[in-house]
């Protein structure tokens, strides 16, 4: 009987998951790490905003009116004399929360739904995907208005509503991926090992479909943030004095000619977030692709 040295066993057991390996690879990607660090910083700031914001978000100074950046107000003030930095900080709380929560909801529903439909195939697939088609056809605005009418205006509801719309595309992408993976022999091999469908989907199919899903996720987060701005603009989302980046940008756009800083700074905050998301998304996709350079 052969014997194994402890060192050999330790080497075999080191980092036993795709995710551990992915993290090792991600750490070598500078751009992705910077993206990750900046996003984390934004999240920390958003959490600490009530304690670090220079002014209250309700404090107005109508005499001051819109003023350009100055020593008292680093990013200037809006037409009501409210501090723009404070507004961006508070707006970030809403925008980041909407972006991440709604996308997480979409991801969870979409990936599960698409994976099940793609794996099951046949009639189950047909019924599940027709349901997706029906929801696609349903006018989004009516859906949201209905929800607001029934449940009243509520931030959590807004998150859920947006997530409930965004998952449709996610489900379609996932289904297509799973369908093509389903044909591969390694899936047959896994079935012949006796794996249950749930384990098979979780361990063999989903990890192989992650690439496009991650890319689409990084695209979904910003589009969700803009969707929130659109809803808020219509009076269905957050309302003043509460604010969000999307809302700040749409107000800023109206007064762009007189007070450009009202557009530039919220715009910068959003752009920076998007850049970081893209870097992180690209990095994650490469890190999860084991064929990428490892050493």
């Amino acid at each position: 009987m052969s014997t194994e040295t402890l060192a050999e066993i330790a080497r075999a057991e080191r980092g036993t998951s795709l995710w551990a390996d992915a993290w090792l690879r991600l750490r070598r990607n500078k751009l992705a790490l910077i993206g990750f660090a900046v996003l984390s910083l934004f999240v920390v700031i958003a959490l600490l905003t009530p304690w670090i914001a220079p002014y209250s978000y309700q404090a107005q100074n109508l005499e001051l009116g819109a003023s350009p950046p100055s020593a008292q107000h680093w990013l200037g003030t809006d037409i009501f004399g409210r501090d723009l930095l404070t507004q961006i900080l508070y707006g970030g709380r809403i925008s980041l929360a909407v972006g991440f929560v709604a996308t997480a909801v979409a991801l969870l529903i979409g990936v599960t739904w698409g994976a099940i439909a793609g794996y099951a195939g046949g009639r189950v697939d047909a019924v599940m995907m027709r349901l997706v088609d029906i929801l696609y056809a349903l006018p989004f605005m009516i859906f949201i208005v209905l929800l607001t009418v029934v449940f009243g205006r509520n931030l959590l509801l807004l998150f859920l509503a947006i997530g409930a719309v965004e998952w449709l595309t996610m489900a379609r992408i996932m289904r297509g991926q799973i369908q093509s993976l389903r044909q591969q022999e390694f899936v047959e091999a896994a079935i012949s090992l006796g794996l249950s469908p749930a384990t098979l989907i979780r361990r063999h199919l989903v990890p192989n479909a992650l690439g496009p899903i991650i890319v689409y996720t990084t695209l979904t987060i910003p589009s969700v943030m803009l969707l929130e701005a659109f809803l808020s603009f219509l009076g269905l989302g957050v309302q003043p004095p509460q604010t969000s980046w999307g809302l700040l940008i749409s107000y800023g756009a109206e007064t762009m000619e007189e007070y450009p800083w009202l557009l530039v700074f919220p715009g910068l905050a959003l752009t920076l977030t998007l850049f970081c998301l893209n870097f992180l998304g690209d990095g994650l996709r490469d890190a999860l692709d084991v064929r990428g350079a490892r050493d």
């Binding site: 075999a12 057991e13 036993t16 998951s17 795709l18 390996d21 591969q184 022999e185 390694f186 047959e188 091999a189 896994a190 012949s192 090992l193 006796g194 794996l195 361990r203 063999h204 990890p207 192989n208 999860l288 084991v290 064929r291």
Partner: peptide
Amino acid sequence: MRRRMQMIFQDPFASLNPRMTVYDTLAEP
């Protein structure tokens, strides 16, 4: 019963999960 009968496939490039190491592939069964 699946434990008692197994299959070796034609194409070793398609029959192994590309995202699982040798360790994961062999440890699974």
